[in-house]
Each structure stands twice: as structure tokens, then as C-alpha cells.
């Protein structure tokens, strides 16, 4: 087996794992705190990616897009939560899945209306063009940037959850929303901000992913399937669990392709099923 190929795929796996992390983080956050299954999470990624393409591609504002798009998507998330999702909290998981799947359909169709049905792509900014050579492997500079940026975002998220007042309220509400409310926490507001935070990370995942790959209206659904697998494999408790699971899934997919070109995704879902079957999963208690 060609070791340099394995090494190249290893690097590739880390990069795609980073995008999975950003997406899975929000999914597991919303599930963990609000006990809510959000099938529309992939469409938030989609909105982020298309907004990123428009801003970075047509207007040439890649750097502003990294900041503005997550804010926009976070705002959209907040609006969605207020208009629709809070009505589904008490409805049980089946209706949450149905409602958010319906929402995903509406968003995807809206995206097609605005941006058209075809694959679109955008170039990385000039500053991040070119490649690094590590041994015989090449890694585009942009991908290294994505890894670094995701690391930074991960730290910020960790800080928000573990060290900020909002993080404290969020964990308290997740533990017991009645008790938190009794102690003066505005639980609906915490939920809304949690959802916005999850949406914003999905949005930035979209912005960062767009220059690495083409985006089609189906991209959201595709990547969300994987994100669900990551959440199942990584569990809900810690950021680091989700992070490690994201890397694992990225690596399994990427290295799997070397040995079995069509089978990379099969391995991911087999892994997902095995984890569900062999562990007493936290999802079960939720």
C-alpha cells in the first residue's frame, strides 16, 4: 500500500472532519439542551454556504462573509425558533422530525428559487491560494486555514459553554427547565439563543466548506446524514466527544475510499449502527 496516498487521505479526512464538527456541534447542542431533533439543521448549513458564495464570489467579500454570514444564519435560526420550533417542543420527537423536515423542504425550495438548482462554487480568497507540501503530500493552503479556523471556533464554543454565564444558564436549562425557570432563568430565551448559536455554527460551516467543494441544493441533506452519524457516535455530553467523532468519521470516509472506493459512506453508517446497538446511549434517556 502506498503510504504517501494514505497520508494524503489522512490529511483530507481531518479537513472534512472539521466541517462535520461544526455541523454536528449545533445538532448535538440543540438535541442535548432542548431535547429537540432538528432535521432542518442541514438547511442552515445550506443557507450559510449559498450566502457565502454570494458574498465571497460575487462581491469578493470572503473575510466579511466569515463574520456576517454566521450572524445572518443565527438570526434566521432565531426567527425560525420563535415562529415554529417552540411550538414543537412539547410535541414529541416524531412530530419534531416531521415539522423540521417540512421546514427543510421549504428552505431547500427557497434556495432553489433564489440561487437556482445547479452546482455552484466559489474560489478561496487570494491570500489562501496555493498549496503546502508535506513530504510527498500536497494540502491546499485554504484547507489548512479551515482546520485552524475550526480549531479557533471550537475553543470559542468551548468557552461559551463552559465559562460564560450563558453557558451556565444553558446547562441548567438542559438539566431541568422547570427548576431553572423557578430560579429566574428565562428559559425560552435561553432556548432561542441556544438555537441561534447552533444555527450560526452551521452557517459558518457552510461558508468555510463552500470554497472546498461545490454546493448544490442537495448538499444540506447529504451532509446532515453524516452529521447525525457523528452525533450518534460522539454522544451529547462534551464538545470534545463530538470533535473526536467528527475526526473519526472524516478519517473513516477518507481512508475507506482508498481500500473500497464506493464503500466509504457504508463504513460510516455501519459504525453508527454499531454504536447505537452496543452502547446504552444518552440519546435514549433524552
Amino acid at each position: 500500500m502506498d503510504l504517501s496516498l494514505l497520508f494524503a487521505q489522512f490529511l483530507n479526512g481531518i479537513v472534512i472532519g472539521m466541517v462535520y464538527f461544526l455541523l454536528a456541534f449545533g445538532l448535538s447542542l440543540i438535541f442535548g439542551v432542548q431535547n429537540f431533533v432538528n432535521f432542518a439543521h442541514g438547511s442552515l448549513f445550506l443557507i450559510g454556504a449559498y450566502l457565502g458564495i454570494t458574498m465571497a464570489g460575487r462581491l469578493g467579500w470572503f473575510w466579511p462573509a466569515i463574520v456576517i454570514v454566521p450572524l445572518l444564519v443565527g438570526g434566521i435560526g432565531m426567527a425560525i425558533e420563535w415562529l415554529l420550533l417552540r411550538r414543537l417542543y412539547a410535541a414529541g420527537h416524531i412530530y419534531q422530525i416531521l415539522g423540521t423536515y417540512g421546514l427543510a423542504l421549504v428552505i431547500v425550495e427557497t434556495v432553489i428559487l433564489v440561487w437556482g438548482p445547479f452546482t455552484q462554487s466559489v474560489d478561496a480568497p487570494d491570500l489562501l491560494r496555493g498549496v503546502f507540501r508535506i513530504g510527498s503530500a500536497v494540502v491546499p493552503v485554504y484547507r489548512v486555514f479551515v482546520v485552524a479556523a475550526t480549531g479557533l471556533i471550537g475553543l470559542i464554543l468551548w468557552f461559551i459553554i463552559q465559562r460564560s454565564r450563558f453557558g451556565l444558564q444553558l446547562k441548567a436549562s438542559a438539566e431541568s427547565s422547570e427548576m431553572s425557570a423557578a430560579l429566574g432563568v428565562n428559559v425560552p430565551s435561553v432556548f432561542r439563543r441556544t438555537f441561534a448559536l447552533g444555527a450560526a455554527t452551521a452557517g459558518i460551516a457552510g461558508v468555510l466548506a463552500a470554497p472546498m467543494q461545490g454546493v448544490t441544493p442537495g448538499s444540506g441533506d447529504e451532509i446532515m446524514g453524516i452529521a447525525f452519524a457523528v452525533v450518534v457516535i460522539g454522544g451529547l455530553t462534551t464538545i470534545s466527544g463530538v470533535f473526536l467523532a467528527s475526526l473519526a468519521v472524516g478519517l473513516v470516509q477518507s481512508i475507506g475510499i482508498v481500500f473500497w472506493p464506493e464503500g466509504g459512506s457504508i463504513l460510516v453508517y455501519v459504525l453508527m449502527a454499531l454504536v447505537l446497538l452496543t452502547t446504552r446511549h444518552e440519546l435514549a434517556s433524552a
Binding site: M212, Q213, V215, V258, P261
Partner: peptide, 20 residues
């Protein structure tokens, strides 16, 4: 040769295979 599906958007793995 690397095959990819009609909805593939991520080609980095195939490119690595090609380079190898």
C-alpha cells in the same frame, strides 16, 4: 480511474488517488 456519483461535490479523495 475513480468513479463518483452524480451528486458528488467533494473530489479531494479522488484527486489524492489520482496523484498517487
Amino acid at each position: 480511474n475513480s468513479y463518483h456519483s452524480l451528486d458528488e461535490t467533494q473530489f479531494s479523495s479522488y484527486l489524492n488517488n489520482a496523484r498517487a
